[in-house]
């Protein structure tokens, strides 16, 4: 049983495990990607958490709490996966808090109405699933395993969002208008979640070669459009893009041009809620300091003294 090299492993579609030798660039890319993914999960708790106290029924409230709890769980799976690469969760959080690491731009948009909770579940989690399913086959074992758990849990998120919008779109004219407005505002930002177009995505080729990324940004975006257009018809809602139409020749839906200038601006920090999200995260972290300290003090006090200790 000879030791297999990193390149042999990748060529054989094998999985790289934490203590295997790996190129520095591979490790750095994974840390950056997994950390950004983890940060997105915990920042993603904010837009929806905003509606827990105002959910329209006890049923919706219980569902929304379970969903936001899942996002926290997903963040923790991912921080644990990142730590297998030799980094500390506390350091990663510090990098988020000081702006050196990013989170998904989608969470910088506000949730203005209850229908936005539906649009986030249907479109944002829908886009996330399209992005994440291929990551279950990522070449790095711990990341792939975390993604398997996450993908299983995400499908409930998407369905509950679809159900919210379906209920609203078949309700009063006011509810219907609210659902349409939420879809109008979230459609384009959801398409931006797949990242810049392929000819402007500098790291894609290397990530594909390393088996971290399995499909290009534009391929995944197309896949999302193809699955979402018929769902919008089932909801009896309109997607805010007059250019969407089936293309028989390509076997895909054509769609209009995404405004990647907006994506760049939001990533740079100029989205509608960037400052609010970061301020909230920092406050939550600082306000929780006494809990962390108390738990550590309690653990120290109750630790069994080592045998022979004075």
């Amino acid at each position: 049983m000879p030791n297999v090299s990193f390149d042999d492993l990748l060529a054989d579609d094998g999985r790289v495990e934490p203590r295997d030798p790996m190129p520095d660039g591979y490790r750095r890319t994974l840390v950056r990607q997994i950390a950004q993914h983890a940060h997105s999960e915990i920042i993603g708790m904010q837009p929806e958490g905003n509606w827990i106290s105002r959910a329209p029924s006890l049923r919706r409230k219980a569902i929304l709490m379970a969903k936001v709890q899942d996002e926290a769980g997903h963040g923790l799976y991912l921080y644990a996966a990142a730590e297998t690469l030799g980094v500390d969760r506390a350091d990663l959080l510090d990098q988020l808090h000081t702006g050196r690491q990013k989170y998904s731009s989608i969470f910088n948009y506000p949730t203005l109405t209850w229908a936005d909770v539906g649009a986030i579940g249907w479109l944002v989690d829908g886009a996330a699933i399209v992005n994440q399913v291929p990551l279950c086959r990522c070449s790095y074992g711990p990341y792939a395993r975390a993604m398997v758990r996450i993908c299983k849990e995400e499908s409930f998120h998407q369905r509950q969002g679809f159900e919210i919008l379906h209920t609203l779109s078949h309700g009063t004219p006011g509810q219907r208008a609210m659902a349409q407005d939420a879809v109008d505002r979230y459609w384009w930002p959801a398409l931006m979640m797949f990242g810049p177009p392929d000819d402007d995505s500098p790291h894609s080729a290397q990530s594909m070669a390393w088996g971290i990324k399995r499909f290009s940004n534009d391929d995944l975006r197309q896949r999302f459009v193809d699955m979402t257009v018929p769902q919008a018809e089932a909801l009896d809602l309109t997607l805010p893009d007059p250019e969407i139409r089936w293309n028989d020749e390509r076997g895909h839906y054509d769609f209009g041009e995404v405004d990647f200038g907006e994506l760049t601006e939001v990533i740079k920090g100029n989205g509608p809620c960037n400052r609010e999200r970061m301020a909230h995260r920092l406050r939550a972290h600082e306000d929780g300091a006494w809990v962390r300290e108390a738990a550590a003090a309690y653990a120290a006090k109750h630790a069994v003294p080592e045998e022979g200790a004075a």
């Binding site: 923790l76 799976y77 644990a80 730590e83 969760r89 395993r145 975390a146 758990r149 962390r292 738990a295 550590a296 309690y298 653990a299 109750h302 630790a303």
Partner: peptide, 11 residues
């Protein structure tokens, strides 16, 4: 199934 951080065994 994975790992987590906690101050003591009970938590």
């Amino acid at each position: 199934v994975g790992s987590l951080h906690a101050p003591d065994a009970e938590l």
